[in-house]
């Protein structure tokens, strides 16, 4: 099944490359990955959707992400109340006669037409994966010329937090009262 992870990383050059390289090296398959800024300039946020056979794989992904020095926090929000969104731009074949039909469809999905050309229109749709998939299916018979999607982004509702599965990793552990640098002098 698909798991969604929200990952906070230091906003430094090359961090995306490190994450991608890790997934390739450990043979994890990314369904989608969206990166962007957060409320803090020094932190970026990644929403990563992965196909995991079971909880063990989800654990592996979390624990491996923590191995990257620049990864600050990993939450699995799959089973939490969360808002998830994907944005799609879909260029549909539509001459003047079909525009109204596309427009009607778009309205049902609360999508918008953002560009009109002689024989095509661009529809912008935001929503959950399911909603966007549903709309694409209905638009497909009309002829989809081009499509782009951002991949999912996610945020838990209210005070909910995702699950943190890797015990001991990065601050989710139990440092006790010890100085965090105590291990430096082993």
């Amino acid at each position: 099944m698909q798991y969604t992870f929200v990952t906070l990383v230091e906003n430094k050059p090359g961090v995306l490359n490190r994450v991608a390289s890790l997934f390739r090296r450990r043979n994890f398959n990314i369904e989608s990955l969206a990166v962007g800024r957060t409320e803090r300039p020094d932190i970026s946020r990644m929403t990563i959707v992965m196909e995991c056979e079971d909880e063990t794989v989800a654990h592996k992904i979390e624990a491996n992400l923590y191995k990257l020095v620049n990864v600050i926090d990993v939450q699995d929000v799959t089973h939490q109340p969360a808002v998830t969104r994907d944005l799609a731009l879909i260029k549909v074949k539509a001459g003047p006669e079909q525009r109204a039909q596309v427009n009607n469809l778009a309205q049902i999905f609360r999508a918008r037409i953002v560009d009109v050309a002689a024989d095509s229109v661009i529809v912008e749709a935001t929503g959950t994966e399911e909603k966007i998939e549903g709309m694409i299916e209905l638009l497909r018979p009309m002829g989809i010329l081009e499509m782009v999607r951002t991949g999912q982004i996610a945020m838990t509702r209210g005070a909910y937090e995702g699950t943190r599965r890797a015990p001991g990793a990065n601050g989710n552990g139990w440092h006790g009262d010890e100085d965090e640098n105590a291990l430096a002098e082993y």
Binding site: V9, E10, L68, G171, G173, E178, E180, L183
Partner: peptide, 17 residues
Amino acid sequence: EVRLPGYKPPLRAPKAD
């Protein structure tokens, strides 16, 4: 000092475990 927000090696395990 070293400031690495994403790097905190764990030290002890919780009592329950």
